[in-house]
Design a protein around this nucleic acid. Structure first.
Lengths: 179, 179
DNA sequence: ACCTACTATATCTGAATTGATATAGTTTGG
DNA sequence: CCAAACTATATCAATTCAGATATAGTAGGT
């Protein structure tokens, strides 16, 4: 989907091998965007066929043969087009939060446990993101937005925790006067 | 991925047709989870083969033939298992935010424009979510979390906007006074 | 009677994505 | 010296997902 353009974005700053792109993606953009190495190689091949990147083979000085990819002028144009585009509708799926939507199938104690576990896993992710290496300017800004989001989620979870501990009838039946 | 369990969750409350599930998904869970109708039918067939749902054919009283799906006891067990599971790592992709990470390929004015556009599209989404119909308890809570996240994103974007309007060197070098 | 829109089920294609595996050279620890 | 770990490229199968299309009945408007 957006992977070709994300790779162009990384290449716009520094020519890299496929392997290095995979690492940069994980270090600089995750969890905002992710891709397996097995997806990166075919995508690079497609970009090459489209004339958006070129590569040359580096002699195996240290290690096996390496293909160094470089963005072309057409690639930079495509990148600018993508970034400047009207924004896509926010539609990021979130399995953890989706589970919260069905908490009513659990007992009160289990709900508390699940919410607290979820909160801890987010806290750990925040810690991981904050301890990352220094990033280029806007990559750092994007990461800051991700962290703000995660912390907003944690604040919301604390409210959810309070609500989840009370029996359903107490809170729901008030606005269920519809009948 | 999580779609089978999300469908079980919706069915745990009310038996529905595939069409109704698609609508409920869009109304109650989007943008937290989404699926096209073309994905829902095969998934329901798979759930049926696994014995997690059953269906019976309703006579076409109004409209064409309708298959009403009902969750089974095994389905409820699977749903509880899924919800109670240790939470998955937060890894929601976000194309809009990914673009922000490469804002440096644009000019100062274009950056401002893109950020403001992004902010407006999020604001519209928040409005849409707030004006939705009343939801079951935890579905409402999950939506609240989504809204909090979106609003946290907007706050972050305002900071980003201020940072994006200044040339890169200006924020770092105080001695680089333009004279 | 005709057209349009809506409800409903279903299939097909292709793209995106994941997970596993193969190959091979280099580096490092015991 | 050997085993393990790391770097690096690459392919395969399976799954998920999106977009388009087909079919058909019903309801409402002209």
């Amino acid at each position: 989907m957006a992977l070709p353009d994300v790779l162009l974005g990384l290449l716009s700053e520094k020519s890299s091998t496929g392997y290095d792109l995979a690492r940069a993606l994980e270090i600089e953009l995750a969890p905002l965007w992710r891709a397996e190495i097995s997806q990166i190689y075919p995508t690079l091949a497609r970009l090459r066929r489209a004339g958006l990147v070129r590569f040359r083979v580096l002699g195996p000085q240290r290690g096996p043969r390496r293909n160094l990819y470089r963005i072309t002028a057409a690639g930079r144009r495509e990148l600018r087009r993508w970034v400047a585009q009207p924004p896509p509708p926010p539609r990021s799926k979130d399995e953890g939060l989706a589970r919260m939507a069905f908490l009513d199938v659990l007992s009160l104690e289990e709900r508390r446990r699940v919410i607290l576990q979820y909160d801890r896993s987010i806290a750990e992710e925040v810690r991981r993101l904050k301890s990352g290496t220094p990033l280029p300017r806007f990559r750092r800004e994007a990461r800051r937005v991700v962290i703000e989001r995660l912390e907003a989620t944690r604040r919301s979870l604390r409210i959810l925790l309070a609500a989840a501990g009370t029996p359903p009838s107490a809170t729901v039946r008030l606005d269920e006067k519809k009948k």
